[in-house]
Design a protein around this nucleic acid. Sequence first.
DNA 1: CGAGCGATTGAACCAGGTCAAACGGGGTGG
DNA 2: CCACCCCGTTTGACCTGGTTCAATCGCTCG
Lengths: 204, 204
Amino acid sequence: MNPIAVTHEPLAATATSAPLCFERGQRIHEAGAMGFPWRVSRGVVRFDTAAVDGELSFAGLAMEGDLVGTEVLMFGHFAHRATALTPCQLEPWPGRLDQDRAGLLQALARAEQRAADIVALRSGQAMARVCRLIELLLPRSATAPQRTDLPPLRDMAEITALTGETVSRMLSGLRRIGALEPERERRGNGSKTCRVSRELLVAA
Amino acid sequence: MNPIAVTHEPLAATATSAPLCFERGQRIHEAGAMGFPWRVSRGVVRFDTAAVDGELSFAGLAMEGDLVGTEVLMFGHFAHRATALTPCQLEPWPGRLDQDRAGLLQALARAEQRAADIVALRSGQAMARVCRLIELLLPRSATAPQRTDLPPLRDMAEITALTGETVSRMLSGLRRIGALEPERERRGNGSKTCRVSRELLVAA
DNA sequence: CGAGCGATTGAACCAGGTCAAACGGGGTGG
DNA sequence: CCACCCCGTTTGACCTGGTTCAATCGCTCG
């Protein structure tokens, strides 16, 4: 559908220097597949890992500036499945193959920060978790309009360790107090753009 | 008490090449303090970070082989408070200051693994979480006796996102079925060494 | 001995899970 | 064009696992 978006195989093989775009829900790479590391230049990426029982389960997020799949430089294949949680854009990393110590250090610090974020996303009351998640999904630039394509309920539920029903109830609550407003003009895919009021969000 | 253990200040300043030992509960470094990165050679370290409200809250774990405080190489100070969750031993990292790309890559992969572990520690039923935590605290070597100094209830509660009361009930349950057995001969500090049956643990 | 603190246990409560029904919108086939 | 289906979402009613509050215990240290 999106002419820019392509499937994993060719892009992983070419490691072109052009950034690549993915739509909400699109697979970026499969666990165990081979490829190269990426850097998220826009959007949010979801990781899933194979649990002991073989089931894939939520394992983490990567956001603007984070690296994706650095483990291929060690193990030769991706440890997690990566999916676009919001429309997002990735660029090959490192741009040049010289040893990028500073980049790695930064990635390490970011990874730890991200881990702390995720712990926070799964702690506390249901409403607070959902609000934190929405906040995380808002575009980083403060000037940008506060609107976002919310991921499917199922994703939000797995990320916050709640059930879909509970997330739905929380979203309803947010709509009721005006913190969240559905926008007309839905695109062909199931995405539902919402206008978000940051103030009401943190208040809720 | 332990003659090997020393407080944070001197060791952070010296960055000696000798490994350092900490007892259960001992502070390793404070958030915001200056110092050098470490590598955990034995035991488990707990991180706490200042939340938005200024409160310190659980943010992660570092286990055997993980790096601690690499962010000082970027920011000049520690991002988290680090505390010894079990008796543990740290060594300065890197041993030599040449660019250790492989080490950094490994650290990155480990950090992601750790993040996934922690997500797992805070998901699912209370009993399962407590069991997973205990398993994580067991010494890594398969040959070693399956015993461990359990951290204070308060720590276990914060790590698993449960209450102290619930953790206590779960531990009582594990003792009842013989998966956990308190050992006599308690040391001076509050530590309670326990014998653990891995089989019964995973069964519970 | 008594103070203090963590751990344990009990009882009541409630936030969120579970189950089930209904809704809505997009796609498909007639 | 409409009928139908599919699937994600919404909403309600009920249930329960874990929290909360509180009382007690046990150990350590003054």
